[in-house]
């Protein structure tokens, strides 16, 4: 059996002196889509910031594909798509420049940034400034940026905030394809259960500082989350 993408043991997370998550233990499966769900303030973003290394656990351990979670392992295995509202869209940078920032090794960007964007049907965006992109186009460009180093894990933090339904649908299809065709582990934070596809997916439900991980259908049914 594969190593889990993330193996979390007795994790306690604090944000600004408040305990956000206490005693979380779970294995996040590799090569699957796993949703991190829960209401506002449940600790979803805090957990994500810990998985990408910008916050340190107060106590407990996290392993990534069996190795300790450190900056080298994160750089090797993880691609991250932030909430697109966190990107300064007035910054005068083109999609080409933005994606090239990730190519820090010769092996990265072997197929070229244009070739990479073609995978996402987004080659026409290459010379556009990010201020000229629609929300969906920017989100696509951010996903392309996160995948340019070919990471095994893609983490997305509320990727569909403020996007229209058609764009959401397109991006969900894109993520499904990444999982099914390319075997990526996709970890996807959302507070909006109406947009997620429960089939063949797992979910980590965060509530009152603790979490339950399992098949998305079961987790949602057990906790009657669709009623929320």
């Amino acid at each position: 059996m594969d190593n889990p993408a993330f193996s979390i043991k007795n994790l306690e997370l604090r944000y600004k002196d408040n305990t956000v998550i206490s005693k979380l233990t779970c294995d996040i499966a590799a090569h699957k889509i796993s949703y991190i769900i829960g209401s506002n303030g449940a600790g979803k973003s805090t957990l994500v910031k810990t998985l990408i290394g910008t916050l340190k656990p107060h106590t407990g351990t996290i392993r990534i594909f069996g190795k300790p979670l450190d900056s080298k392992a994160i750089a090797e295995h993880v691609g991250y798509v932030p909430q697109y509202s966190s990107i300064d869209r007035s910054f005068p940078i083109t999609v080409n420049e933005m994606i090239a920032l990730e190519c820090n090794q010769k092996t990265h960007c072997n197929i070229g940034i244009l070739g990479h964007l073609k995978i996402f049907n987004a080659e026409k965006l290459i010379n556009k400034k990010i201020s000229e992109l629609s929300g969906g186009e920017l989100q696509k460009a951010l996903i392309a940026r996160a995948l340019v180093t070919n990471p095994e894990i893609l983490i997305l933090d509320e990727p569909f905030n403020n996007l229209d339904h058609k764009t959401e649908f397109d991006l969900i299809a894109l993520l499904k394809n990444l999982e099914a065709e390319h075997g990526k582990t996709i970890i996807f934070v959302t507070h909006d259960l109406s947009i997620i596809n429960l089939e063949n997916a797992n979910a980590l439900y965060l509530n009152h500082g603790t979490g339950v991980y399992g098949q998305a259908k079961e987790v949602v049914k057990e906790h009657q989350l669709m009623k929320i």
Binding site: K72, A75, V78, P82, I87, M98, L101, N104
Partner: peptide, 13 residues
């Protein structure tokens, strides 16, 4: 990278 998106830059080591 740091000026544009410090969080993403730190993930890249």
């Amino acid at each position: 990278y740091v000026a544009f998106d410090a969080e993403a830059a730190s993930i890249r080591g």
